[in-house]
Each structure stands twice: as structure tokens, then as C-alpha cells.
Computed example of a mutant assay.
Amino acid sequence: MSSSIVIALPKIEDAKKIRTILNRHGLTVASVCSSVSNALASISELDSGVLICGYKLTDAYYKDALDDLPQYFEMLLLASQRIIDEAPNSVSTVQMPMKASVLIDTVNDMLYHLERRIKKEKKKPKPRSEKEQNYISNAKRLLMEKNQMTEEEAYRHIQKCSMDSGTNMVETAQMLLMLMYDEI
């Protein structure tokens, strides 16, 4: 998944100038526009990235775009200090007039942190279904009854068996249930 940049400023010429600056520093801009609706339309076709925008666009304010940003998009607001002081904490900011180096550094930082967040969330295990959770709960219950274990001991036992056998916890719980029911 590669992150993209969308620029939305009220004056399209300003957006194009910023695109040129970003391109010179190796950053690819997916789209340049002057309205929130066009920016959101462009963003909807992308996986992740940064929306660089001004305070007021041709059809709405930056906060309107912020409300509709997808999970893996972050906003960089280019505005005066007065507007920046009122911006929510979730919005990164660069004060106007700006230096190109500050813009480049800020965008690079945002893209780096966004990529890290995406990688971290991809590594998270997906939540278990109710059926899968029931296998583990039933295996724990049987271990607690048959082997006089606490709930934590039963869970650790399933976890250890899972690691030792190289199977996930649900498969291990299913195997334990089959073995224990065969004994009954």
C-alpha cells in the first residue's frame, strides 16, 4: 500500500505550485483541486495518504473534508496562526506564509507515521468470531473441570499447546475438546 498526496486549495495555481515543490523533492501528488468535493472524490480512489488543504475551499471549509476523510488519510492544513490555533489536534498544520523545507519535512513525517500505523494495524490479529471464541471458552471450561485449573491456567495451557504444535488457538482448542470428549 503506497500513500498518496491530494492538494486542495482555493486557488488552483497555488495548488499546482505546491505540487511542483513536492515533486521536486520526490513526493508524488495524485491530484490537485480547489474544492472539498473534488478532493474527497480523488481520495475515494486511493488507499491512504495526506490531504493538503487550505482553510476555506471553493465549496466548503477544511472541517467539512475532515469529517469525511477515510481512516488512512490525514490532513495537513495550510493556514494563518489564528486558524491553526483553532484547529483540532488530529490535523497537522503549517503556518502560512510557509517555507518549502517546512512543508516537505511535515509531509514526509506524516507519510512516515501513516505507513507505520498501517503496518502496525495490519499485524493485529483479526477478532475471533463468536464460534471461534466458544471453542476456546469450552476448552478452558473442560480443562478447569477435569484438571482443577484456574481460568488463567487453562488459557495459558491452550496457548502453550498452540505454540508447541504450531497451530492457532482455535484449532488447538478444537483438538483439546475432541481429545477430552473421547475420554468421557
Rank of each mutant, 00 (worst) to 15 (best):
N168Y: 11
V50Q: 00
Q148E: 13
T93W: 03
M1S: 13
L51E: 01
R19C: 08
K99G: 10
I83F: 05
T106R: 02
K56R: 14
G49Y: 02
I43Y: 03
L46D: 10
I84D: 01
L76K: 09
K123C: 05
V107H: 01
T167M: 13
K122H: 08
L143H: 07
G166F: 04
S42R: 04
T58Y: 02
R117Y: 08
S80A: 12
A79D: 00
K131R: 07
M110D: 07
Q95E: 00
T167S: 12
S162R: 00
K122N: 11
S44W: 03
L179C: 05
Y155L: 15
I12H: 09
E145F: 09
V29N: 06
Y61M: 10
Q71N: 09
S31Y: 07
L76Q: 07
S37D: 13
Q71I: 09
L27K: 05
S162T: 01
M169I: 15
S80I: 03
N89W: 02
C53R: 01
I18H: 05
L51T: 02
T167D: 06
L66S: 02
Q159A: 07
D47A: 10
N23Q: 05
I136N: 08
R24P: 00
L9F: 08
A79F: 04
C161H: 08
K17A: 13
L22I: 12
I12W: 00
L40R: 06
V170M: 09
S3G: 14
E171F: 09
K131W: 06
L103Q: 00
I7W: 08
K140F: 00
S42K: 05
M110G: 07
M178S: 11
M178N: 08
E151A: 15
V36D: 03
D68N: 10
L66M: 03
S35Y: 07
Y61G: 09
Y61S: 13
V94L: 14
P10F: 01
T172E: 06
K120Y: 10
D85I: 09
G49T: 06
T58A: 13
A87D: 01
A60S: 04
A87V: 10
Q95A: 12
L51D: 01
S4G: 07
F73C: 02
S3K: 11
D14C: 10
D59P: 03
P127T: 14
M144L: 07
D14W: 08
D47F: 06
F73I: 01
V50H: 00
S37T: 14
R141S: 14
L179K: 10
K122P: 00
M96T: 15
M96R: 13
D14E: 15
S37A: 12
L46K: 10
S129P: 03
S137P: 01
T20W: 06
E132P: 10
A8S: 15
M96N: 08
E45I: 11
K126R: 11
S2P: 04
R82P: 01
V91Y: 02
D67N: 05
I43K: 01
S137V: 11
N168P: 09
I158P: 00
V29Q: 05
L103M: 11
H25A: 14
Q95I: 07
E132S: 15
D182G: 03
K160V: 03
N134E: 14
I52D: 01
Y112E: 05
